[in-house]
Amino acid sequence: MLRLIDRSEDLVIAALPQDVDFCTGPDVRAAGERLLADGCRYLVLDSSPVAYLDSSGITVLVGFWQHLRNAGGALVLAVSDEHLRWRLGVLGLDSAMTITTTLDEAVTRARRLRDAAHRPTQRIPSAADTGRA
């Protein structure tokens, strides 16, 4: 049910189907779970094909977001439809998930999140390290 657009290591870009609802939700969930099981930690979902998204579809997206967050990754949604972005905002999902208006922006955000997670953290030298102990 998800259409794979691109995959680069642990970053996957996929498009949602036209309808994400009670009938299609289980197939979308299963397709996403296969990606997650195969090592996807950063998932970009293009919502431009979506014509209908009900509460079952929202539940699928929240499930992906929770799984990825718990794995130290991220879900980034590309939502070009203003009404759908508004609906996600009403539900408060725009404060939890990363939501962009274009697919290019979503991919850029996901890459930045991945790069930041893979970047070694800088340790602040202690007094013992500088010989001032």
Rank of each mutant, 00 (worst) to 15 (best):
T101A: 09
S8Q: 09
R41S: 02
R69F: 10
T121P: 01
Q122L: 15
D129Q: 10
P49A: 14
S47Y: 12
L84W: 07
T59V: 10
I99V: 15
P120Q: 13
M1P: 13
R109H: 08
M1A: 10
D81G: 07
D10C: 00
I13T: 13
L75Y: 12
R114N: 01
R123M: 07
L4S: 02
H118M: 13
G73F: 07
G25Y: 01
L4K: 10
S55P: 06
Y42D: 05
G72T: 08
S126H: 11
V12E: 01
V12Y: 00
L36W: 02
E9I: 06
A96N: 03
V60D: 13
A31V: 01
L88C: 03
A127I: 12
L16N: 02
R29E: 05
V76A: 02
D94I: 13
A116W: 04
S95W: 02
R7L: 02
T130H: 00
M97R: 05
T121F: 11
L35I: 07
G32T: 08
T130E: 03
C40V: 12
S48Y: 12
L68T: 10
I99H: 00
S55M: 03
D115P: 04
A128V: 13
T101F: 03
A30W: 02
I13S: 00
I58N: 12
Q18A: 01
P49E: 15
N70K: 14
S80R: 14
V62C: 14
A74V: 12
R112H: 13
L35D: 08
C40F: 06
S8P: 00
L103F: 03
Q66K: 15
E82W: 04
L35P: 04
D104S: 09
D54T: 15
V79Q: 12
L2F: 09
P17K: 07
L36P: 04
A14Q: 04
V28H: 00
V107K: 13
F64S: 05
D46W: 11
L77V: 10
Y42F: 14
S47A: 15
A30N: 10
T101H: 08
E105N: 07
L16F: 02
G89K: 00
G131S: 07
A74G: 04
L2P: 01
E33S: 05
I99N: 08
L43W: 01
A14Y: 08
Q122R: 15
V76E: 09
Y42M: 06
L11Q: 02
R69P: 06
L84V: 15
P26Y: 09
L91P: 01
E33C: 03
D19C: 00
L45H: 11
D27E: 08
D19R: 14
G63F: 10
R29D: 04
R114G: 01
A133R: 10
T108L: 07
R123D: 08
A31F: 00
M97S: 01
G92T: 09
L2H: 01
V76H: 06
G92M: 07
S55L: 10
L16Q: 03
S55D: 05
S47W: 15
V90C: 00
T102I: 09
A117W: 09
S126R: 12
L11A: 05
P17R: 05
G63P: 13
V62Q: 11
S55Q: 11
G32C: 04
H118W: 12
D104H: 07
P120F: 06
A15T: 03
A51H: 07
S8W: 08
R85C: 10
L91K: 00
A37M: 10
H83S: 11
